[in-house]
């Protein structure tokens, strides 16, 4: 299959269930809201080493936030609900509570919730106070700056992790240009995040390693420098660099939509090939075929 000069490999991305939450951070200025969001989503590229995956979803207009101030929404994903609850408490506590002028709210509607503000309240050492408004409880935690406001419970829902597309190019510059275009296009989709730096990973991994104790190791089949060394290389002749974009989302539809946007942008921005990572279909229940994401797919 070809799209705008790029070869689209007939394969699929294999995604799997993860638990996700949406965190709204507001502050006196957009700058401080972004500071909080960057800190909250920092060091959260992969569950392999970070226990969670997180990213900024989008900037929020003051009219969209609970307190009418500038805000940023972020998504955080973890393999299970308990783990997600722990990561939320850790990260809201260390990154938002500490950040000047911020407040923190749940941004997701879902049946299941976890206790976040109700844990962080103890930082108030007995001087904390709660307020219940319209059925939602908020905690006011006194801090040196003034007061930190955090919602007690955050909704969590089963989402999708591990959506991905992989862009190949003749050299690093052209492959990165295609990946940047793909990441930019994907950011227009709500309900997804790209957890790697700038949305792009240069070091896609395979499951396992020849070294015991390592869960994952370099995806040698897609390393151009090993094309002549590994028996199962997937690097076509003429390809000099490969990048991957991983997508986590609240729904498989949002992940698929983001992949479609990214696929199209990458193909039109200089990628020689676009493919996707999977584990033979044995790991995750969501199989998102690239051919189904092409413009016009599913029509007629």
């Amino acid at each position: 299959m070809r799209l705008a000069g790029a070869e689209i490999v007939d394969t699929f991305a294999e995604a799997f269930p993860m638990w996700g939450a949406r965190i709204l951070m507001t502050a006196e200025t957009p700058g401080w809201a972004h500071e909080a969001a960057r800190s909250l989503t920092g060091f959260a590229t992969s569950v392999i080493g970070c226990k969670c995956e997180a990213g900024i979803e989008r900037e929020l207009d003051p009219a969209e936030t609970p307190d009418g101030r500038p805000g940023v929404s972020a998504l955080l994903f973890a393999p299970d609900r308990d783990g997600l609850a722990k990561r939320l408490v850790e990260r809201v506590g260390q990154s938002v509570l500490t950040c000047p002028t911020t407040a923190c709210f749940n941004g997701l509607e879902a049946e299941k919730t976890v206790n976040v503000g109700g844990q962080l309240r103890f930082f108030g050492d007995g001087y904390q106070a709660s307020k219940v408004l319209d059925g939602r409880r908020y905690w006011r935690v006194p801090v040196m700056e003034g007061e930190f406001l955090v919602q007690e419970r955050f909704a969590v829902a089963e989402g999708v992790g591990g959506g991905n597309i992989i862009m190949l190019g003749v050299d690093s510059a052209s492959a990165l240009r295609a990946a940047e275009a793909a990441a930019a296009a994907m950011r227009s989709v709500r309900g997804v995040i790209l957890p790697f730096p700038g949305g792009i990973a240069r070091s896609g991994s395979k499951v396992g390693s020849r070294y015991s104790g390592l869960m994952a190791s370099t995806n040698d089949a897609l390393c151009p420098t090993l094309r002549a060394q590994v028996p199962n290389t997937e690097v076509p002749p003429g390809v000099g660099s490969v990048f991957e974009i991983v997508i986590d989302g609240l729904t498989v539809e949002a992940v698929s939509d983001a992949m479609a946007q990214g696929l199209d942008a990458a193909a039109r921005s200089g990628a020689s090939h676009v493919t996707a990572g999977n584990y033979g279909g044995n790991l995750g229940p969501y199989h998102i075929a690239l051919k189904d994401l092409l413009p016009g797919a599913g029509e007629g």
Partner: peptide
């Protein structure tokens, strides 16, 4: 003297419910 964050939520809700809250109050 400070800006209570929680109060913004309350006053915005009251304005949405029809009470005459000003921006200065919020």
């Amino acid at each position: 003297t400070y800006r209570p964050q929680f109060l913004r939520l309350y006053l915005r809700r009251l304005r949405a419910l029809g009470l005459p809250l000003t921006d200065q109050q919020i």
